[in-house]
Amino acid sequence: MSVQPDPESDRAREGSSDATPGGLPEFRRPGELAFAVFLALASAGLLFSAHDIAGFRALSSPGAIPMATTAAMLVTALLVLWKTARQPKTGDETLRIAVFPASVIAMAVLLIGYALLLKPLGFLPTSALFLFIAIKLLSGRSIVFTGVVTLASVIGIWLIFRIVFTVLMPAGIVPEAEIIQIFRDLFNGGA
């Protein structure tokens, strides 16, 4: 028998901000148990690794605070796991809808693509591609609209970060430095 949680809005389940996280205090959401198990295992692994830093050599060893914090992680993670395991499941949610809706999966795929292409292709083409596909997918607006928004945003961000703040994004196939030099020569020549 599954118990129905109080009818609550999605907002409450997802929390209104970082100070008030989501979740349902009395119920277990899909995937929550697996996450709790993962955290407990990861904490155990980190505690092990913290012990490897310097063992129990001295109070002042570089491993002292990491050992204390990872131990705290393990204890709390186990307590949370125990609590979570005993909670009744929410009856109205599935993993597919509550955790991995199509839009989240799509974004994840796009982000992985971005991460893979950033270095070989360079910042400008990768970002343009990412924005174009993402906006097109999510909004379903026309190609012209999407294209204009994409171009304007990428150029805007590039101008601020690359030109004003001289942040050197991966250039990839676009010879950014040469283009900038052409403009610089143009301006210097004209002045």
Partner: peptide, 15 residues
């Protein structure tokens, strides 16, 4: 867009 970028790329190799 890509056309323009390739053109720039070629232009710049000459420089």
């Amino acid at each position: 867009v890509f056309g323009a970028m390739t053109a720039l790329a070629f232009g710049a190799t000459a420089v």
